[in-house]
Design a protein around this nucleic acid. Structure first.
Lengths: 229, 229
DNA sequence: AAGATTGAATGTCAAATTCACAGGAATATT
DNA sequence: AATATTCCTGTGAATTTGACATTCAATCTT
């Protein structure tokens, strides 16, 4: 690393695709930019990484600043480093996605955002910078991992019905699933707990409530059961 | 992005896990460092990204400098950005892996490497910096993708036998596979071409030679056939 | 040239999994 | 009490997976 100096002038940022699930729709938390460039355009929440901050810490910070949440599911996806991706200089950005229970959050506008809003993923057609590409990329990764790891529960309330869980899968994967077969699969891997409680106030037969059973899932893993939808 | 200046002082590097396959072993191309820090230790080939260089370009450059190869399979894996991962300053590194035909290459030592060598993946226990962690991470990604995408062929010579292909899978995945079932699977997805040629000079019945059939694979994809081993 | 050696090639059957599919049950509303 | 709505569950056919052993074609040895 001779001539170090001239290399130490890139900036590194983190952009976070925050997914939520509501009313059978997959949503993403976006901000409306309050400054140039791309003033007034919708963008992914993100920020520069502080000089003394780990990149994972930065991703968590952005999430916390926006939602007040800590300890939520967060996964690094991909780094975008085209020379000209940012109009103000060389900024390399590391993308993450996170999964949160949309009801736990009422996000507030902040210093860097005029406005903040949950948008239906399928309705988004454009974002500032290369953020649309980044979002699409993260969605693909979510789809892949949703089938291989029990991360869907992160998007649901603590207690949920099987129909809600199925709707979540259908919404993320973008296709319909057979109800009986879906339930068979979920049951076979021992990952949810029957709470012996029921929905109330619905104008039809109430559905049973379940919760994700982490211990049981760990046990299932050890027994060699592989999660797959 | 006010106060920009103080943020623009990170360095960004690229590290490349170059996989090759030989004699039924999965290997990685390592360099012995010719300078501090970690002088004399084995490390992944990598370099700082030039100020006006895309990160993918940098990854390709490193590969080319070391092997003379262009247009080989290259996949970004993960970015490592712990504050203290590099003793000389804040260096964020983006890891890639690439797959090459080991016979096409006779790597030469270069300015930044005293020595260069193919090492058996399973024999590696330590590398400079956090490179061991990076390598392990890339290996995991290779294992996942080898099952889902027809990338194994990148590691083989143009013409290969089914036994060689199977050994490759066994070597990467780290487990034995049943010969007849493996062949059934490969045959079902129409992705290889029977060349009607045979091994020569072997002291046993010669095996048929095949090559990967890109067009046929594209067709299979359109027909909804999914690659999976 | 006969026999031994080596790895190549191939098919069947049982078990497990996937897939398509329909009707009775529990609650709220009128 | 009748209606509307969603919940809940099982079976049979088709497909896939997984285990397994013999014959074939070349070289090597004697």
């Amino acid at each position: 690393m001779s001539n170090s100096q001239e290399y130490f002038k890139s900036a590194v940022s983190v952009d976070n695709v925050i997914f939520g699930f509501d009313d059978s729709d997959l949503k993403v938390l976006l901000i409306k930019r309050g400054e140039e460039p791309f003033f007034g355009e919708w963008a992914l929440p993100g920020d520069l990484v502080y000089p003394n901050e780990d990149i994972n810490t930065a991703a968590n910070r952005i999430l916390f600043d926006l939602t007040g949440l800590n300890n939520v599911y967060l996964e690094q996806v991909m780094t975008f480093g085209e020379v000209d991706r940012h109009p103000k200089g060389r900024v390399i950005t590391i993308s993450y996605f996170s999964l949160i229970n949309i009801n736990k959050v009422s996000p507030k506008a902040s210093s860097f955002a005029n406005e903040i809003s949950w948008k239906n993923v399928r309705d988004i057609e454009y974002l500032a910078f290369d953020h649309f590409k980044i979002m699409t990329n993260c969605l693909k990764r979510l789809q892949t991992n949703l089938k291989l790891k029990p991360i869907g529960f992160e998007l649901l309330p603590e207690n949920f019905t099987l129909t809600e869980l199925q709707q979540l899968y259908e919404s993320v994967l973008g296709k319909e699933l057979d109800k009986r077969n879906f339930r068979k699969k979920i049951n076979k891997m021992k990952i949810i707990k029957d709470l012996n409680m029921y929905q109330t106030g619905v104008a039809h037969r109430p559905a049973r409530l379940y919760s994700f059973d982490k211990e049981s899932y760990q046990q299932a893993l050890e027994d060699g059961i592989t999660f797959e939808i």
